[in-house]
Design a protein around this nucleic acid. Structure first.
Length: 284
DNA sequence: ACCCACCCCTGGGCGC
DNA sequence: TGCGCCCAGGGGTGGG
């Protein structure tokens, strides 16, 4: 379940591991991994072969690698995707989907993805934000993130606060784990209506989101079930610092009330029923 | 323009 | 021991 901190760890690994290198061979082991590349796997491989990777960029949970051709290799890890930089003689992973070798004969880039929610695609545009990612908002750690713009846009919405936090066109990088952690820190129930937030409350919440993302990034991210790892195959350590996510029935770290898990948006929401009081009336 | 339900996918865990 | 069901959930899509 890679969210911003996990994807940023991967981006840094790609910057170190593949930036400045020239792609040699490309093999697509599973067509679903390049389904967003409408022209097909052959076209995908052809656009990569012989190209030099210039750098590694990120917008929200999306990654992109600008190429010397003016195109960019874009990727999303989905639920279980991994981009590994490994020695060529390392045995093939069970869920290897795409493999890129380099003309220097060094470590290769492998896209491994058990659930295949993720995928790769080549898009025109180079170092510009790829058009396929254009709708994704900046994330709260981005120096150009505009807090006041978020305040305005969020308060105009007529929805629950957690839905808003998960909306990548409003702010990006936040998924289920960091949404729950941020709401717990802000003592807000996930269904609190956005149109009743004061500007100050939005600013405070964004501050908590930023803190959680930064602390997790410093810990190398959260590795719940070993499906998330860095390009070196290393797990993150933030799981041990989670206050509510995955702690159903365990005591709230502030008030000892058992943490509750509820079904929400076809997934789980973890919260403290005492610190995070449900709004009086449901959103209607 | 906005909101939201649905769907894609696989393997681990669990009940029977 | 094995089968079948549930669960993890990001994001694109299409209907309201």
């Amino acid at each position: 379940m890679p969210e911003l901190p996990e994807v940023e760890v991967v981006r840094r690994g790609l910057e170190r591991g593949v930036a400045g290198r020239r792609i040699c061979e490309v093999s697509v082991a599973h067509p679903r991994a390049v389904r967003r590349h409408v022209a097909g796997a052959e076209d995908f491989a052809g656009l990569l072969r012989g190209r030099r990777i210039e750098s590694a960029q990120r917008r929200g949970k999306y990654l992109w690698l600008p190429l010397d051709s003016g195109d960019a290799l874009t990727g999303h890890l989905g639920m279980s995707g991994q981009l590994l930089v490994v020695p060529p003689d390392k045995p093939t992973e069970t869920h290897l989907r795409v493999r890129l070798t380099f003309d220097d004969g060094g470590r290769e880039l492998r896209f491994v993805d058990q659930r295949t929610f993720g995928g790769l695609q080549v898009v025109a545009g180079g170092s510009e934000l790829p058009s396929t990612i254009g709708h994704i908002a900046r994330d709260p750690l981005d120096p150009d993130f505009d807090d006041e713009d978020l305040v305005r846009r969020l308060r105009r919405r007529r929805t629950g606060i957690k839905r808003a936090l998960l909306d990548q066109t409003l702010l990006s990088g936040v998924g289920n784990i960091y949404a729950d952690e941020s709401l717990w820190r802000a003592r807000l129930h996930y269904d609190r209506p956005t149109d009743r937030f004061t500007a100050a409350a939005v600013r405070e919440l964004v501050g908590h989101v930023r803190d959680v993302l930064r602390e997790s990034l410093d810990a190398g991210g959260t590795s719940f079930d070993a499906l998330y790892v860095s390009t070196e195959g290393v797990s993150g350590l933030f799981e041990r610092e989670l206050a509510v996510y995955g702690r159903d029935g365990e005591p709230c770290l502030r008030c000892r009330t058992p943490v509750r898990r509820e079904r929400f948006m076809n997934r789980s929401s973890y919260f403290c029923p005492r610190c995070q009081r449900r709004p009086r009336a449901a959103t209607c």
